[in-house]
Amino acid sequence: MKKIHLLITAIIIITFSLTASAQSDTKIGALLGYGTEIKTIGLGANAEFPIMEKLTISPSFIYYLPKDESGIKINWFEVNANANYYFLDEENINVYGIAGLNYSSIKVKYENSFGLGGDFSSSDGRIGLNLGAGANFNIGSSITPFAEIKYVIIDGGSLLLQAV
Rank of each mutant, 00 (worst) to 15 (best):
G42R: 05
L88H: 01
S113D: 00
V95H: 13
N92L: 09
A22L: 11
I149P: 10
I127A: 10
L65A: 02
I143T: 10
T56P: 05
I154H: 05
A10M: 06
D68I: 01
K109G: 06
W76R: 06
L55G: 06
K150C: 06
L32H: 03
A45Y: 03
K73R: 07
F77Y: 12
F146V: 15
T26F: 15
I51R: 00
P145T: 02
F87Y: 12
I93A: 06
A83W: 02
D89P: 12
A81H: 09
L159V: 15
T56D: 10
I93G: 05
F114E: 01
A20F: 15
D124N: 09
I127K: 03
H5K: 13
Y63T: 06
F61D: 12
A10Y: 04
I62Y: 05
D124S: 09
A81M: 13
I51E: 07
V152L: 07
F49W: 12
I11D: 08
A83H: 03
G118P: 02
S58K: 09
E90H: 14
S113Q: 00
L129I: 03
E78F: 10
K107M: 02
S141Q: 01
Y151S: 06
L18D: 02
S105V: 13
N82D: 15
L88Y: 08
S24D: 14
G42L: 05
V152D: 00
I14G: 13
G44Q: 01
I153W: 04
F137P: 12
L7I: 08
L161K: 04
I139G: 00
D155A: 04
L43R: 00
R126F: 09
K3D: 07
S17E: 04
E111C: 03
L160F: 14
G115Q: 01
L65W: 01
N138E: 09
L161S: 07
I12C: 11
Y86D: 09
I72N: 07
A45D: 04
V164R: 08
A83Q: 08
I11T: 13
K54Q: 14
E53W: 09
F87G: 11
G132E: 02
S70A: 13
S121P: 12
N138H: 12
E37P: 07
H5T: 14
S58T: 15
A22T: 14
P66Y: 00
M52L: 15
G125P: 14
N102E: 07
I11P: 12
A30W: 06
G157E: 03
G35A: 01
S24C: 11
